[in-house]
Design a protein around this nucleic acid. Structure first.
Lengths: 237, 237
DNA sequence: TGTACATCAGTGAACGCGCGTTCACTGATGTAC
DNA sequence: TGTACATCAGTGAACGCGCGTTCACTGATGTAC
């Protein structure tokens, strides 16, 4: 029967897991470029050819790791946001940003794999999109929730939206069901997203080296400036 | 005499140039990871070992390319900014941002080399810092000039600067002689810088894929939002 | 429950590739007298 | 100006490395009767 799990099935699942775990360890320690099938096989004391029973190619293994990494950071952010009461919008926003940076710092190579320069000779397949979209969707949802709850200060109307921008904003809003979320707010949320990842990337990739002795307060402040520009604010007591 | 240039000297200089040019071509076509000494040597129809007369190692060649790339983008931005009258601050800002994105689009692999994930096994030496700092310094100078000219609207004071942030801002201002440029303004300029590169990187590295059908107007709008948050504005006629 | 065959995991050797770097060498260019 | 020696560019072979992938194979597990 189809529900019966044979010993083979079970072994297969376990070993697949062991392979991705070993691969993730290599990725974490040396980075994506140093990740080779042979190295993973050595780690597991298998013949290199044995891995081909589990992954059809190195690229397939890479894809699995990319999806894992996206899910790992998204889980981390979700968990951080979830630990703040739902109506505390500003703290939720801060928690999300802090979680992105925190994960990046504890998983630098994984971060580089998904948000750094594309791996040479590797084209990310469609399968990575759902996991890769989780964080931007989460950030947009956070903004939308706050807006619906009436918790944002008046959205700035300046600068006015040129036609072409409004069109792009409408398309995106339709695609991901944002309803009538004000378009300037939507665009600011996208900008906040780009800034968040820009700040983390520049820091992690060494571009900020020398500018500050401690990047943390600067990042935290930048997050608050972003939050402010989105209309988040401290609750009145 | 020391001023005399022998044929050997001249040849050496020319060939060094040919090597970096060939290397840059490889970099532009296939990316940094595919850049090998042997491939460059093949291109120039030299023995691979001959390159060691010009560069002590592959890493030295990479360093040369990194510096070239930083200088290339900085030249491009400087030229774009320079072609706008000095007192037109908002147009200058827009020109700078557009130039960064434009260069990134025409030189994607070079952009990835300098602003993407660090090349595995390669640690950027100190020598790259002066060239790498040119753009941030240029952006900060632009903001400072506008401020000195009194061309910015009142700098927002909210959110207030926590002590730790003020300290970092002061250090940076001292280090690069920004005088009494208001600290919130300075920090917003840094944030604008991170957003600029964040937007370009996310777009170039494929994270925005699917969100918009045309990224240009969205980018342009984001630049104007940034400019607005820095106090840039259209001149009154 | 027992047997015959099909499926599948894993092995080990091999292929063909490209890489950075070293080394002893040849021959041309530069320099001191 | 001419000669003797030193410097340096470039060659070609070699070293040692690691990689992804293929293939014919053995032996264990699963399945149909």
């Amino acid at each position: 029967m189809s529900a019966t799990r044979t010993a083979r099935d079970r072994a297969r699942q376990e070993i697949t897991l062991e392979i991705t775990q070993a691969a993730r360890r290599h990725l974490a320690e040396k980075g994506a470029a140093a990740l080779s099938l042979r190295a993973v096989a050595r780690d597991l004391e298998m013949a290199p050819s044995a891995l081909y029973r589990y992954f059809p190619s190195r690229d397939a293994l890479l894809t699995a790791l990319i999806i894992e990494a996206y899910d790992s950071i998204a889980d981390h952010v979700e968990q951080a946001v979830g630990s703040v009461p739902a109506e505390e919008f500003l703290p939720r926003w801060r928690a999300a940003c802090r979680a992105v940076r925190g994960w990046a710092h504890t998983h630098p190579h994984e971060y580089a794999l998904i948000y750094g320069s594309p791996v040479p000779g590797y084209a990310a397949p469609q399968e990575t999109i759902p996991s890769g979209s989780r964080i931007p969707l989460l950030l947009l949802a956070l903004v939308k929730d706050a807006w619906i709850a009436g918790a944002l200060t008046d959205t700035p109307t300046h600068p006015a939206l040129p036609e072409a921008v409004a069109e792009q904003a409408n398309r995106l809003a339709d695609a991901i069901h944002l309803g009538d979320l004000p378009r300037p707010l939507l665009l600011r949320a996208v900008a906040a997203w780009t800034q968040l990842f820009g700040a983390v990337s520049l820091e992690l990739f060494g571009q900020l080296k020398g500018a500050f002795t401690d990047d943390t307060p600067v990042f935290t402040y930048a997050v608050d400036v972003m939050a402010h520009s989105l209309g988040f604010h401290e609750k009145k007591k």
